[in-house]
Nucleic acid binder design. Sequence first.
DNA 1: TTTATTGTATTAAGTGATTAGTACAGTAAA
DNA 2: TTTACTGTACTAATCACTTAATACAATAAA
Lengths: 124, 124
Amino acid sequence: MSWNLNSDRPIFQQIIEHLELEIVQGVYEPGQKLPSVRELAAQATVNPNTMQRALSEMERMGLMHSERTSGRYITEDESMIKTLKKELAGGEISRFLEQMRRLGYSGEELLDILKEEMCKGEEK
Amino acid sequence: MSWNLNSDRPIFQQIIEHLELEIVQGVYEPGQKLPSVRELAAQATVNPNTMQRALSEMERMGLMHSERTSGRYITEDESMIKTLKKELAGGEISRFLEQMRRLGYSGEELLDILKEEMCKGEEK
DNA sequence: TTTATTGTATTAAGTGATTAGTACAGTAAA
DNA sequence: TTTACTGTACTAATCACTTAATACAATAAA
């Protein structure tokens, strides 16, 4: 999947979200070795320093760990990945419901719109 | 409503989104006079320059217009406000569905979760 | 007329994100 | 041993956003 980084928000944050998504999706499996910092930076067309910052942050979160000279690896703790998925989904849902409520959409109205919108998406 | 500005994204963008929401909500009605730049800046505890930037941008969008010395007024074009509401909602919906799809949630799964989550919200 | 308020413009300073470039220590492979 | 690759650290420069501090012209109100 392409990185799709823009200048609206800090790039290192977008990188974190991108990698979190790929971990949840299983693009990177538990325990799997990641490409090197320089390799990832090249893929994302980003400065190695920026990629390093994102990876360090994810390491701090416990999502990966580095072996100093051998490389960097995804956590082997599958429950942590499941938890991550639920947290990401929960955040999306609560933000979405809150925002739609603010825009003035009631619960039933919202479900109707969503059903309709989801049918549209299926036609593609 | 409080402004709830953070440093994650440019403040002037957050101000724009906040005011767009208040216009859609009818906090500011079509044709209504807005507080002065300095007054709004004080309310949001933000520099007047930053507020000015946000307001100029919304003026460029056609959502408001300034009368040079008398003050600044919301557009009287109600259809523009309706359109704004639909655009904001449409953006929220498509972003949400896309993100949940990426996280691996199917359509039916999503509707079930939403129904459950909406019931939780009603209990409060 | 005088006063206060309006939107607007300008300059300077500070901050955080990003890039560029370089460097170092540890290790696996040749 | 030598070579290449690993994560990591550091400095400098640039850019956008924000704040601060003024300033000015136009107008409504006193």
